[in-house]
């Protein structure tokens, strides 16, 4: 474990806490893409298949349970909670995310470390996570004005993988046989998707203005 990876995990955790706060405090999920949240459930379930078979550390197991539990809770809330599901902007959340699942799975069948069930599902989860934010970013552009909590949620979500890139660079130089080319390349693509959001987020922060994404 290094400081970059720990900062990345904490930033990821903060993004989830901010989203849960928004949904429970405002009893609203307006501006949040249910499709992106559903993709994250698939990402965590596909990546943590070894949750019960291999033990790495208490931290690792606890964080996996938190990520799986929170992503399921958010999807449940947006689909089943009476007050919250009424605020879901279904007509703005129109990205055909099934293609992202299909494309990621096909890519995992072609590009993986080893052709085993766990490695293919792990690569699938890595590719899917890279594109999982797309429905949310498209929805933000459609909905124009972004409320603070939603903006902070997307910001922390983008920042966490940027910390992971620093973690991979650090491990590359400190560990002899370290190679995570799948996670690294995918992480670069994932963080690149946030580039324009980060730009407009920085502008809104600098001008102390509302976050506005160009339609």
């Amino acid at each position: 474990m290094n400081i970059f990876r720990f900062a990345g995990d904490m930033t990821h955790l903060i993004s989830i806490v901010v989203l849960l706060l928004k949904i429970y405090a405002t009893k609203s999920c307006s501006g949040i893409s249910l499709k992106t949240q559903e993709l994250y459930v698939i990402v965590f379930l596909a990546r943590y298949l070894d949750l019960f078979t291999d033990f790495i550390s208490v931290y690792n197991t606890v964080m996996k349970l938190v990520f799986i539990g929170s992503s399921l809770a958010i999807v449940w809330c947006m689909r089943m909670h009476r007050a919250v599901k009424r605020t879901y902007d279904k007509e703005l959340d129109t990205f055909r995310h099934y293609f992202l699942v299909l494309g990621s799975f096909v890519l995992a069948l072609l590009l993986h470390e080893k052709f085993t069930f766990q490695e293919i599902f792990w690569a699938f989860s890595i590719y899917l996570e890279a594109v999982a934010i797309l429905p949310q970013l498209v929805m933000l552009q459609r909905s124009g004005n972004v409320d603070n909590l939603t903006g902070q949620y997307v910001f922390f979500l983008g920042a966490y993988r940027a910390f992971y890139i620093l973690n991979w660079i650090y491990r590359f130089f400190t560990e002899p046989h370290f190679s995570r080319w799948i996670a690294c390349l995918s992480g670069l693509v994932q963080t690149a998707f946030y580039a324009d959001f980060f730009y407009y987020y920085f502008i809104s922060w600098k001008n102390n203005a509302k976050l506005q994404l160009p339609a």
Partner: peptide, 10 residues
């Protein structure tokens, strides 16, 4: 065990 060894990241 080999799978998880190099999958120590979340």
């Amino acid at each position: 065990q080999s799978f998880s060894l190099n999958k120590d990241e979340l």
